[in-house]
């Protein structure tokens, strides 16, 4: 470490008195979370599972500063892909996990199609592209993606509360206009579930290989350390 920074650190550190602890408030919030868990347990176990996993996701997002918006923005803006690589890793793990659940639930036969009926399988077409471009541009200028603004509301960003309400407004308007888009684009688009075309084991292996390839591509790009578009 450089000497100048060390000196500056010492100098600045001396100018501020000891910080107060927020841990007691955190404890109160934990008690609140447990209380809501107990309450939801009486309504339905399904809801209580959602609650507890949500808390865990929230903690993880905040602690690891996981930001989907940055994972797409940083490669373009500053040429760094460490977040993108982490997300690709998460995608590989989820792929394998979902397939494992599929097999354990259907006992090896593919007739149940757990992922296809319960998972996120939807029509693909021009509407996907339009939606994704709107979403991608929106998340960069609003400073947070869907999981990001939820996490930052917890961190105390008043701006992200505004984003939340704007997001809700946009989503509701989109729902309202849905009939129009459905008639123009969506109803003509196919729903493509990849294991319908190649058997599930091949689809799994293929997907993992593609994700691994993207991982190494991202790694190479990061090492090139380019600063584009500035």
């Amino acid at each position: 470490m450089s000497k100048a920074i060390e000196e500056l650190k010492l100098k600045r550190q001396g100018q501020f008195k000891k910080r107060s602890s927020q841990v007691p408030c955190g404890m109160i919030c934990i008690v609140l979370a447990v209380a809501i868990y107990a309450l939801s347990l009486q309504i339905s176990t399904n809801h209580s599972t959602f609650w507890i996993i949500g808390i865990l996701i929230g903690v993880t997002l905040q602690r690891s500063k996981f930001c989907f918006s940055a994972s797409f923005r940083d490669p373009v803006l500053v040429g760094s892909t460490s977040l993108l690589k982490a997300i690709i890793l998460a995608l590989i793990i989820s792929t394998i996990g979902f397939v494992a659940i599929e097999y354990s639930n259907s006992g090896g036969s593919e007739s149940l199609d757990w992922i296809k009926t319960m998972g996120q399988v939807h029509p693909v077409g021009i509407h996907t592209a339009i939606g994704a471009i709107l979403f991608g541009a929106g998340m960069v200028i609003a400073g947070g993606c869907a999981s990001g603004f939820l996490m930052r509301m917890g961190e105390g960003f008043l701006l992200q509360i505004v984003v939340f309400f704007a997001f809700m407004m946009g989503a509701v308007i989109g729902t309202w206009h849905f009939e129009f888009w459905d008639k123009v684009l969506i109803s003509n688009s196919p729903t493509i579930f990849i294991p319908d075309y190649v058997a599930l084991p091949f689809a799994t292996i293929g997907q993992v290989i593609i994700l691994l390839f993207l991982y190494f591509l991202a790694d190479w790009y990061d090492k090139k350390n380019s600063i584009m578009s500035m």
Partner: peptide, 21 residues
């Protein structure tokens, strides 16, 4: 990654100063 010296301190709750040389 750019090769500069860097360090940070937290000066109050949720506020930091990042030093870059």
């Amino acid at each position: 990654k750019q090769g500069h010296h860097v360090d940070y301190i937290e000066i109050t709750e949720g506020q930091w100063e990042i030093f870059i040389e």
